[in-house]
Computed example of a mutant assay.
Amino acid sequence: MNWNLLLPEYPAWQPEWSRGDIRLTFFKCLKWQVEETLNPIECPYHYYCDSVYPGNYSPVVDNLVLFFVVSTYLATLVITVMHIAGRAQSCVQSKRYLLPSGPIALPLIILALAKGHRINTTFPLSSTGPAILQLVQISALTFTNGGDNDIKYVFFEASTISGILHASMYLDAVILPYYTGFDALVKSTFSGECPSCVCRNEDLVVGGTLVSYTGWSLTTFLVVGTLCWRVVCRLYGKKLGKFILIIRSLLEGSSWILMIIDCVYLTTNSPPERLMLRVAAFGGILVLICLCVIRELCTCITQLHSVYKSRAADVCNRSKIEMTK
């Protein structure tokens, strides 16, 4: 990142401009305005920030959001480990209230992301918001909403699907201005006419060109598609046969692969703000993904073992019948 643009030695720098204010203006700019330039050779595109988001909330709000997110993460981690150890069968119905994708935590996460542009002090959602969305997606894929009947199950799954889509939309409203300002700061030069006035050699696009991640992406739609397909399996699985289970496995596998790719990409390609916080957030997500993959492997091995035992028992019973004959 070209932080030299913010150094006082830069020719266009004005003494009354603060580095922190400039950086905050770029990262929280809501609308970039292009205007005609009198120097088409050295300044073919001239932009300035026309409006910014309101000020940040108190650090108390950030700390509350941090405590809540860490609590839901730890709850997901503990329940995943219990499932791997085979000790979570007794809390199948109640565990959904502790998960990020549950009916209690998910609305609070959506509320935090909806106000995410003002949660930007000790726990900035512009940096950690993608990790929170991935936490919700992992929870939704790993744990099925338990329901006593099909109507309750469909209701819980529909609310989870709606929550993931809303969370993705609100996350984009937070990170796209952040990535746009990052692009404007790195790939531009200050014109000196105002604190946010910059000259560029190319157009400034929404989200910039340096970071390609968005919440409203193929990963989100695959996760949502997987959840929808689970509903179809629950309602019509017996009628449609094995084909519907194959499609479900393909959707789930593709979702996990894309989430891993997004997590690794964000760890290495995000703006260098709050580096340690970002590494800790996505490192925790990678650990949770690994545990969930291990859980799925354990489930598959258990199912194969049970099928093998049942077939072996059938063979033994048939041999006994033949011997008696």
Rank of each mutant, 00 (worst) to 15 (best):
L185I: 03
W216A: 00
T209K: 15
I244K: 03
G192P: 06
L204D: 02
S255N: 08
L251V: 07
S196L: 02
D203S: 10
E252F: 10
C194W: 08
N201P: 06
L240K: 09
N201T: 15
S196P: 02
Y179D: 09
D183P: 01
K242S: 14
W229V: 01
K242P: 04
F221I: 10
S212P: 06
G181K: 00
T220C: 13
G241H: 06
K238H: 15
L250H: 12
S196A: 05
S188K: 01
V211H: 02
C228N: 06
G208A: 13
L235E: 14
L240R: 08
C194A: 14
R234D: 08
V198W: 00
L250N: 11
G208E: 10
R234N: 13
S217T: 08
F243L: 10
T180M: 03
N201A: 14
K239L: 11
R234V: 04
I246K: 14
F221W: 12
Y213H: 12
F182C: 08
S249N: 14
L185M: 09
I247G: 11
V211Y: 01
T209A: 10
F221N: 12
L222Y: 04
T189V: 11
S217I: 05
C194R: 11
V224S: 07
L204Q: 07
N201K: 15
S255Y: 01
P195R: 03
G192V: 09
F243E: 10
T220A: 12
G215H: 01
V186A: 02
G253N: 11
Y179W: 11
I246H: 12
L218F: 04
E193T: 03
G192H: 05
A184K: 01
C199Y: 12
T226V: 08
L250R: 11
F190G: 01
S196M: 03
C228S: 09
K238N: 13
I244R: 02
I247L: 15
L235W: 15
V231D: 03
L235G: 06
L210D: 01
C197H: 06
G181L: 00
V211G: 01
L240C: 07
L240N: 06
D183S: 03
R230H: 05
W229E: 04
V186F: 02
T180E: 07
W216G: 00
S191L: 11
Y236V: 13
T214F: 04
W229F: 10
V206C: 06
Y236W: 15
L222E: 06
G181Y: 00
L245Y: 15
V205T: 13
T180N: 02
E252Y: 13
P195K: 02
V224I: 10
C228H: 00
S217H: 05
G192Y: 06
Y236C: 13
L240V: 09
R230P: 00
V224G: 05
G225C: 09
T180F: 02
V205S: 08
T180H: 03
A184S: 05
L218C: 07
E202M: 10
L245V: 11
T214L: 02
R234F: 12
S191E: 10
V211W: 00
R200S: 13
Y179R: 05
V232N: 04
L235F: 14
N201W: 14
W229L: 10
C199F: 11
G237H: 07
Y236Q: 14
V224E: 00
G241K: 03
L227K: 00
S212N: 13
L222G: 04
V224M: 06
